[in-house]
């Protein structure tokens, strides 16, 4: 309870700081919107020509993309502190975090709150509404819960990847750009249901980084391709991934404390 209050206190300060630079905030939000709008245009024109891919229709792909985009925006909004962790380590700010009697994760989550991701979120919501409107899904409560479970699992998954990235920053700050594959890459290519990319990518996205748990499997239930409601619970599997990434993070901190920077 106390932790939540402290977190909200952090967020209120971050938002007040952001609002000191309103113009910059609006422009960043606009940029976020435009970048994902371009990806949407790409999908639009491809479907204007092909009308379906691997049996998925335009509105189904839009739903898939919208949910993925929301998950990513939420994770970026809340866990941006980990995404920007290289700077925190480079400028020695992590020492300050360690001399405070609160958990480092809480302090880092509180240090950043990217409100500008609202631009991307807006794009996602528009597509989501369009997708709902045009797809043939009967919106019963179990389908609504499926979407909520996808949002939860996906946000947790992306936040965990950010956490692993942050943990790697304790070891090196060089060449960590490759982690973009797991974050930006997943956002970019998660627009299509993963089976579109073939069975090999399906395996990688299940056993190495479990994207399919928050995208392909629950989507099958959402789109009515299976009646097995277990698929709707798959996103909770990412909790295991989150625990693993937490261990990596702990290991990173203990390395930092023994090796210095």
């Amino acid at each position: 309870m106390r932790a939540i209050r402290l977190y909200l206190h952090y967020i209120s300060i971050v938002i007040r700081s952001t609002m000191e630079y309103k113009a910059s905030f609006l422009l960043t939000a606009m940029g976020q919107f435009l970048v994902s709008f371009n990806i949407f245009l790409g999908i639009y024109f491809l479907f204007a020509r092909f009308s379906e891919v691997k049996g998925y229709s335009y509105s189904e792909v839009l739903l898939c993309f919208a949910i993925m985009l929301m998950e990513f925006s939420l994770a970026e909004c809340f866990a941006r502190g980990f995404d920007a962790f290289a700077g925190i380590v480079r400028e020695g700010q992590f020492d300050r975090i360690l001399v405070r009697p609160q958990s480092p994760i809480l302090q880092i989550l509180g240090s950043k709150f990217e409100l500008s991701r609202i631009g991307r979120m807006l794009q996602a919501v528009v597509m989501f509404v369009y997708g709902i409107y045009h797809s043939n899904i009967l919106w019963t409560w179990d389908k609504v819960l499926t979407v909520i479970s996808m949002l939860f699992g996906g946000t947790l998954l992306f936040a965990s990847i950010f956490l692993i990235y942050a943990a790697l920053c304790f070891f090196t700050l060089d060449g960590l750009e490759f982690m973009n594959v797991l974050t930006d890459g997943a956002r970019e290519y998660g627009k299509y249901p993963i089976d579109v990319y073939g069975s090999r990518i399906m395996k990688i996205c299940t056993y190495i980084v479990p994207y399919t748990l928050v995208q392909y499997y629950p989507l099958q239930y959402l789109l009515g391709r299976t009646d097995n409601p277990i698929y709707a619970l798959y996103p909770f599997g990412t909790i295991v991934f989150a625990l693993i990434s937490f261990c990596v993070w702990r290991f990173g901190i203990s390395h930092y404390q023994s090796a210095g920077s």
């Binding site: 490759f178 594959v181 299509y192 990319y197």
Partner: peptide, 18 residues
């Protein structure tokens, strides 16, 4: 380069599917 490789493959697979 790693990023570009992954991007390239994903693009290839998408267009193959289409």
């Amino acid at each position: 380069m790693v990023t570009q490789f992954v991007w390239g493959f994903m693009e290839c697979f998408v267009y193959k599917a289409f």
